[in-house]
Design a protein around this nucleic acid. Structure first.
Length: 668
DNA sequence: GAGCACTGC
């Protein structure tokens, strides 16, 4: 085995950990920190060690490698835990797990006494879960000062910032780059990145010695175009003029069996040209890559020297590309995280003053509080309700958790479970769509059309059809649904159902299999439950056309997404009110996954909005503290609510996303 | 008739 750089630092690392409760380890890709740190501490007799990873594949593959290095059976001394898969046992001493799983564990056991060491790996990725864990660790090292060690590891994270966050804890730098990577820039900005990538890749293929090429593109669409163009060009090359080449696409919606092709070595005298999304940036390491046609130099130089071609001038790179990733916590809805933190009931944690490495804006916290209030997860003073406590147990966004609670009280839990599970997997359900195959959708819509009521009902009906086929794999294939996506839905549904059984007072309504609602055809109870859950995601149709105005966004005009199955009435009109699952930020904002609701269900929500007092919500029912002057709070309508505003900050984030999108389009 | 990507419980 090649000796990893980190091994030389073992004494130094151990010594620093012995003396400090928190240590930051900065190690570049290839330093071996993910596999070696846990083993070092294990050798020195530390107790059970948890190592978090932001992604499932990473948790599994790193655990597998460490078990192999230690010569033990996976699941014994070394194991992993990801959603739906716990491969650990009583003898497990080193446990790899996703950050989400550790957060769930900390809900059941806030002090995490099971572990002597907690390593938050890949913290530079700034996943929302890791960010929250960092805040919790800061508190935990105080509570468990004598028997807990915390390590924060990262490739590029600003070590000083994290150190400062953890009371000036020590920072260890482990050099890791094994081989040099030469970086080459284009002299000017290309008019088309696609054409420029094509030209550069061919040029490299024809003129450079052997070694694989990795090209980064922004999306599946461009990947498919580039792959087909590359195939044409390579085929057209004169026989024997240069080595062979195989072109491999790589992106998230590619089935796993096609993804793994990039791990098998090419035939002799053949160069692989891999065209990937940023999935290859972090999730997967492709051996043999020596040349890249875009910006991620870290992926080359792993096993031998490499080259990185940047298809734009260095000035562009320096001026426009060096923004550090905006942490997830500063761009996404915080309702789920806020509810989670409130449910922990830590006496010394005030959500508005929770110690984040990069605090989210005051507005987005308030936005989250407003949403939680609207769905009864917190009371008017901002304190978590018993309802909210139960919702936090569910691994769902609060809107869907609330929908399940409501459905359970109105005899349609079975259907609601299905809808929530289908939405959890929605992106992996549909097959890789090619522009040439549009017909597929119709085959399933004969069986399930949403009864005109929208996409939630559509998803429910698809699952019910599959259920009636006895979960036949062939049925999925015949109807153009991804098998692994549907199996995932079934797992999620089962998990949600078990949690609902645990938390509901009476026996939950899960056995009914949806017969009653099915016969009703109008799915009224289910839609009402969705309306209650999506109280913050309501839209009202504009008087004279089919555009909508969101009630949550100050009069923002949105359209129903073209993929929606929602039908028009005799007059060619959409329903007066809908709830939506998400808004997509494109030049024209779209609601994706909508469900028709009735005005009489909307009225109580509007009324509740009138009672909303954001000042009380955010003061947590206690005296408000100085730092945020009242005049900075957004004005909330207390009377005559026509266009209630509950998501001002999110609106500005959507706006910013739109501007970024437009700017990108403009450049093309 | 338009769709940025990726990840997690």
């Amino acid at each position: 085995m090649v000796s990893l750089p980190i091994v030389q630092y073992e004494e130094k690392i151990i010594e620093t950990v012995e003396r400090n409760p928190v240590v930051v380890v900065i190690g570049e890709t290839g330093s071996g920190k993910s596999t070696q740190l846990s083993q070092m501490l294990h050798r020195r007799g530390y107790g059970k060690i948890a190592v978090t990873q932001p992604r499932r594949v990473a948790a599994v593959s790193v655990a597998r490698r460490v078990a192999q290095e230690l010569g033990v059976q996976l699941g014994e001394e070394v194991g992993y835990a990801i959603r739906f898969e716990d491969r650990t046992s009583h003898s497990t001493r080193i446990k790899y797990l996703t950050d989400g799983v550790l957060l769930r564990e900390s809900l059941a056991n806030p002090e995490l006494r099971e572990y002597s060491v907690i390593i938050l790996d890949e913290a530079h990725e700034r996943s929302l879960n890791t960010d929250i864990l960092m805040g919790l660790m800061k508190r935990l090292v105080k509570v468990r000062s004598s028997d807990l060690k915390v390590l924060i590891t990262s490739a590029t994270l600003d070590g000083d910032k994290v150190s400062k966050f953890f009371a000036d804890c020590p920072v260890l730098n482990i050099p890791g780059k094994l081989y040099p990577v030469e970086v080459l820039y284009s002299s000017e900005r290309p008019s088309s990145y696609l054409e420029s990538s094509l030209k550069t890749a061919l040029d490299i293929h024809i003129h450079q010695p052997e070694g694989d090429i990795l090209i980064f593109m922004t999306g599946q669409d461009d990947i498919e175009k580039l792959v087909s163009k590359l195939e044409d060009k390579v085929r057209a090359l004169e026989e024997g003029s240069c080595m062979d080449a195989i072109i491999l696409p790589l992106h998230g919606s590619l089935p796993p069996e096609l993804q793994v092709r990039v791990f098998s070595p090419p035939p002799p005298n053949c160069r692989r040209i891999i065209v990937a999304t940023n999935i290859a940036e972090t999730s997967l390491t492709v051996d043999g890559v020596v040349v890249q046609a875009n910006q991620r130099a870290g992926r080359a130089g792993r096993t031998c020297p490499g080259k990185c071609y940047r298809l734009y001038p260095s000035r562009v790179y320096n001026d426009e590309f060096l923004d550090v990733t905006v942490p997830e916590i500063q761009r996404s809805s915080l309702a789920g995280s806020v509810l989670y933190l409130k449910s922990l009931d830590l006496p010394d944690i005030d959500i508005l003053k929770f110690d984040f490495l990069d605090p989210p804006s005051f507005e987005s916290l308030q936005d989250a509080l407003k949403q939680l209030f609207l769905i009864d997860a917190i009371d008017e003073n901002g304190a978590i309700t018993s309802f909210g406590q139960k919702m936090a147990e569910l691994p769902l966004e609060p809107s869907l958790a609330r929908t399940l609670m409501e459905a359970n009280d109105h005899g349609c839990l079975s259907e609601a479970l299905t809808v929530a599970a289908m939405l959890s997997a929605e992106t992996t359900l549909l097959p890789v769509q090619r522009k040439t195959e549009k017909k597929r959708k119709h085959s399933i819509s004969n069986l399930a059309d949403g009864s005109g009521l929208g996409d939630h009902i559509h998803l429910l009906q698809i699952y019910q059809c599959w259920d009636q086929s006895d979960f036949d794999i062939g049925w999925c294939k015949d109807n153009g649904l991804q098998v692994r996506g549907m199996l995932f839905v079934r797992d999620v549904r089962k998990q949600l159902s078990q949690i609902m059984q645990k938390i509901s007072k009476g026996p939950p309504d899960v056995k009914a299999n949806g017969k009653r609602e099915e016969f009703r055809q109008d799915y009224r109870n289910l839609r009402k439950a969705l309306c209650v859950g999506y109280a913050n995601q309501l839209a009202e149709r504009k008087m004279h056309h089919n555009g909508y105005r969101t009630l949550g966004f100050q009069g923002q005009v949105v359209q129903v997404h073209p993929s929606s199955v929602l039908s028009l009435d005799d007059q060619g009109k959409f329903p007066d009110y809908v709830v939506y699952h998400e808004l997509i930020a494109t030049p024209r904002p779209y609601m994706r996954n909508v469900c028709a609701v009735e005005m009489r269900w909307v009225i109580p929500i509007i009324n509740k909005l009138k009672t909303l007092d954001v000042y009380k919500l955010s003061s947590g029912g206690m005296h408000h503290v100085e730092e945020e002057p009242v005049k900075n709070l957004p004005d909330l309508p207390k009377k005559d609510v026509e266009v209630p505003s509950t998501a001002d900050d999110r609106e500005s984030r959507i706006q910013a996303a739109r501007e970024r999108f437009l700017a990108r389009k403009g450049k093309k």
